[in-house]
Every structure is written in structure tokens, then in C-alpha cells.
Design a protein around this nucleic acid. Sequence first.
DNA 1: GACACTGTACCGAATGTTCGGTATAAATGG
DNA 2: CCATTTATACCGAACATTCGGTACAGTGTC
Lengths: 193, 193
Amino acid sequence: MPTPLLSREAVVDRLVAVFRRLGYEGASLSELSKATGLGRSSLYHYFPGGKEEMANAALDRLSEWMETYLLTPLKKPGTPAERLERVLDALDSLYAQGKEACLLGTLVYGGSRNLFQPRLQESFATWIASFEALIVEAGVDATIARQRAETAVVRIQGALTLCGGLDDDGPFKRVLADLRTALLAVPGDVSHR
Amino acid sequence: MPTPLLSREAVVDRLVAVFRRLGYEGASLSELSKATGLGRSSLYHYFPGGKEEMANAALDRLSEWMETYLLTPLKKPGTPAERLERVLDALDSLYAQGKEACLLGTLVYGGSRNLFQPRLQESFATWIASFEALIVEAGVDATIARQRAETAVVRIQGALTLCGGLDDDGPFKRVLADLRTALLAVPGDVSHR
DNA sequence: GACACTGTACCGAATGTTCGGTATAAATGG
DNA sequence: CCATTTATACCGAACATTCGGTACAGTGTC
């Protein structure tokens, strides 16, 4: 076969970008075609299931990302604090310092949430769970760790919403900075939750 | 002239509901028509500017709501704690205990954000400002009050995103419960931010 | 020649929007 | 008090466009 101009991975990356920016309903085939440089037929060659399969491929890509940058760091060497640092750096770059939206958020809002909800559910759950594991490992009580992990994801998501609405990446930067110091704070110190 | 079946206010309320549920692109005229009981052309009688004007009417309605339930309570009698209680109750019911999405969030995600961004910006800003005023009044330092107010809105928005993704209203309930006790905590106590 | 891929043309359905027209109720005028 | 006008509320049907999706005839590589 001719060398593809774009690897499948690269194609999916561009799909992800469009879905993040425009949402599921807003991401028309024309837009997806323009963004990938592929004609309609080529898109349907790679994704016979059409737009829905493209969105699922985008979600696959995100799961892959989470595997790499959230779950794997749990098993890597280093203190919990060091590994948290790496995770937050990865999130910072994933969301372009608060300037780009979250694919999960994009799919949560928008009329086709039900199409993807099982996957959204799973993604959010493993996200929280990975934070939780890290916090527990830092010596925090399991119950507190659990709610602290949820709060962390809540704050990141909320910050992204606010950044989009305010057209200002301040909230995201502040949340991330705070999480860096607050997420692993030890039991004696009650200054964070 | 004929008696209207629905007051304009009632019509807008139903439009709001559809936009919240489906987003701007997802809210088709057929859907808006079905929800209001008005034919497509009748909708254009009320909103000559079409779908965009309908969404703006929805945003007007939200501004009205904020005026009533966020800004007015600032000037009402009662301790800051009492007034905060009322504000959070109002938010709890606005979002149906976490089961319904935020119109602002819905418009932030979705490809037509730029159409509404000035209004989104203003809404988020006054929301934060109203919290801030309440916190300051409770005797908290202005700088801390500011960031605490932002965090509160961040957490509410994030919780709503998570509730949608997880199909579970737990996060919203927990955030609201925490805000009830944490938002006005006095300077000596550093247990919240 | 088999295979992976792509461009073109096309489909039915749905999109947002507009037009022509009807029904009703209040206001107007005698 | 009645007839006529006028303003409003609404609908059905059609508008052009775009939607997601398909059929097919290639093209270029192994």
C-alpha cells in the first residue's frame, strides 16, 4: 500500500482535537475530513462505524493516554510526591495549560451523552481511582484519600469549564498549583481536602 | 388578538431546558418546537433572530435567575451564614440536586462558544463576585475571599460535569454540603480554601 | 492480479429559515 | 351595539443547505 500520509494514530489525534473543540454534534464530517486531510470515503474506510466510531476511537486514545500518564506512573519508581508531579505535568500539557477543553467534558455536555456514558463513567472512575491510589500511598487515610481524589478531578473539570467561559486560563493554573501542594498533604495537617 | 397558549416566559423556560439537556448544536428546531408546543414558524415569530436569539433568551433567563437568587440575597437581612444557606438551596434546586446540567457549561463546550462568550464571561464573573461579596461580609480577608469564591464556582461546575459523566449525583451533593460549612469559615481556621 | 486506499458522485433525511395564509381577540368607528 | 379594522398568535409547506452515509470506479503498490 502507499505510505499513508498520516498514521492511524495521527488521524485519531486530529479527530480528538476536533471533538474537543466542537463537541460531538458540532464535529461534522466535513470538519473531521478537513482536519484529517482525509476524504469522506477514507474516513469511512478507517472507521466503518462512522462518526460514532470516530468518537469512540477518540475515547480509546484518551484511555490510552490515561493508561500511560495516570496508571503507569503508579508503578514507576520515585516517591509519591515525585510521581504526582509528573502526573500533574502531564495533565497540564494535555489541557494546554487550561486553554483546551476536555474530551470527556465535551461529551458529557451535548445531546449524545448516552451514546458514550459507559465509557465516560469508566474514564472518570479510573481517573479518580488513580489519584486515590497515589494519595493512599502517601500515607493518607483511605476515606479521606477517596474524597480528596474526587475533589481533585472535580476541581480540574470545573477549572476547565471556567477557563472556557471566562476565556482565561487562570483558574486552571491556580487549581493545578494548589493540587501540587495540597493533594498529598499528610493527616496531621488538615489544611486541605 | 388570540390568547397565547404559553406566556413568553414559559416558552423561554422550556427552551432553557432543551439547551441544558442537548447543548446548542444538539438543540434542533424540531426539538425546540416539540418542547414548547410551538411550530417552527411560531418560534420565529417570538424569536426573529432564530436559534441564536432563542439561546440568548435562555441566557437572559439565567441572568434573571442570578439577579434574583445570587445578587438580591446580598442586600437582604440575615447573617451571611443564613443568606449563604439560601443561595446554596437555590443552586441545589436549579441543578436539581446535581441531576441537571448547567446552561453555561453546556454553552462553554460545544462549537458555538464564541457566539455567547461575552455573556458566559459576564455570568461567571458575577457569580464569583457574588460569592466573594458574601465571604468578605463574613469577615474573611479580601484576597482569600476572592480565591475561595472562584474555587466554589469551580467545584460546582466540576461536580456537575462529573455527575453527568458518572450518572451519579453524589459529587454535587458532596460539594454543596462541603460549601455549606467551608465557604464562610473564619480566618483563624485554615481548614478550607 | 490482489489489496489498500481515495476521489467523485450521489442518496435520503434533517438542518435552520422563510413565506403565505388562517384564526382569534382586542381596538376602532359609526 | 355592531361591523370593520388591526395586531397578534400561530401553522403547514416549502426553501436551500448541510447532514451522515454509501456506491463505485479508479489509483498505486506489493
